[in-house]
């Protein structure tokens, strides 16, 4: 069954993905995603009733370590990668 991606869906995906798309990009994205989902729908041919989803190949258990600080103060070097910084802090636009 062909997947038709609506304008609303692409808007919603844009919000989730934090991407701003031009009108031309939206049309392209609708076509690309529709085709890809058509392809992924192939998985529906397989009966997976009762199959446990496998997120990790090896049995994943929590891996703990002692809560000991091993890294030093790296603030200046970390901040040097920031597009904008002031007084030892990252600068962002107003959030309200």
């Amino acid at each position: 069954m062909a997947n038709i991606i609506s304008d609303e869906t692409i808007e919603y995906v844009g919000i989730l993905a934090k991407l701003e798309l031009s009108d031309a990009e939206k049309e392209q994205a609708k076509a690309d995603m529709g085709r890809m989902l058509d392809y992924i729908d192939k998985l529906g041919e397989l009966d997976t009733d009762g199959v446990e989803p496998m997120s990790h190949v090896f049995s994943a258990e929590n891996v703990f370590r002692e809560d000991v600080v091993t890294n030093g103060d790296d603030r200046e070097r970390l901040l040097s990668n920031a597009p904008q910084e002031k007084d030892g802090m990252f600068v962002v636009p107003p959030t309200f």
Binding site: I40, L43, G44, L46, T48, V51, E52, P53, M54, S55, V57
Partner: peptide, 10 residues
């Protein structure tokens, strides 16, 4: 669904 198929492939 993909994670279940992954289990079948394994």
């Amino acid at each position: 669904k993909a994670l279940k198929v992954k289990a079948l492939i394994k």
